[in-house]
Design a binder for these strands. Sequence first.
DNA 1: CTAAGAACTTCAAGTGCTCGAAGTCAGGGC
DNA 2: GCCCTGACTTCGAGCACTTGAAGTTCTTAG
Lengths: 153, 153
Amino acid sequence: MSALTARHEYTIKEAAALTGLPASTLRYYESIGVIAPVGRGASSGHRVYDEEDLDQIMWVACLAATGMSVRDMPKYVANGQLGPCAAGEQIELLTAQQQRLEVEAKQLVLRQRYVALKIDYWHAVAAGDDGHVELLLGEARTLADEVKPASKR
Amino acid sequence: MSALTARHEYTIKEAAALTGLPASTLRYYESIGVIAPVGRGASSGHRVYDEEDLDQIMWVACLAATGMSVRDMPKYVANGQLGPCAAGEQIELLTAQQQRLEVEAKQLVLRQRYVALKIDYWHAVAAGDDGHVELLLGEARTLADEVKPASKR
DNA sequence: CTAAGAACTTCAAGTGCTCGAAGTCAGGGC
DNA sequence: GCCCTGACTTCGAGCACTTGAAGTTCTTAG
């Protein structure tokens, strides 16, 4: 298996893009021991992530998203190391993460609408279109009420 | 009329409940000048919020939710009172924000695809479907390759 | 009226990143 | 070869809250 399965390697930037955590956070997590030390390029000293590292990071990202403090994480990461026997738990956490991402996507769309609305609003103000201004202000208030649960993060 | 139209007054706790921001954050925002100084009870020295304060806080909460830094907020909050003269600057700030949100949306979609792939992967692992596992690992690699051009193209 | 307790006050320190500075390293053009 | 660009490295400071301590004030029950 190992000979044919050329393990793909990732730079810190690719790992960041796939897991949704900034590179700085990946280094931070490694520095405080939340994730295991990542392999380094022989000559460069740069971090080299493999699939296993990414799985671990995804796991940590799930824990972080549920509000767990970084001091409590190492224990739970150890559980995640157990491999195939832990597949069920992995799926459970990843599914929860999927739902969070969906919520995040919805909130993002809402924010995009809100910003677009505000741009319209200022265009109307600049044009002196008072009727349109009033209309847009009303819509903005409606949207503002919906954007409440964006206080986390 | 105005005497009877009791302009409702709120404690910091009520203001927090209505705006969705913790009381500590309201004090923090006031301390750094993001919101105007709030009136105080004559004898107690406790903060007393009125409707206008709440509108301003809601507005700031929206800015915070869209990712604006607290340093940029005072200008933006002040501009809200200035009317048409500041429309150009408002539009400029909001358009920049719109572009940030667009980037964020693309990254979010990428993460969603990755998580979905990982769920498939663990299902295949649980089922002992090694061929499928290999296939999905390959797809993860392909997904990672898409990240690279996204940063510079 | 007084005493207990909840809720407010300020100030300081902690948290979880996040950014900037200064230096190292890989790849490409001359 | 040699330099340039750009991505990586560590480290320490900064940011946006957040929490804790210590004290004051409002409220309520006896």
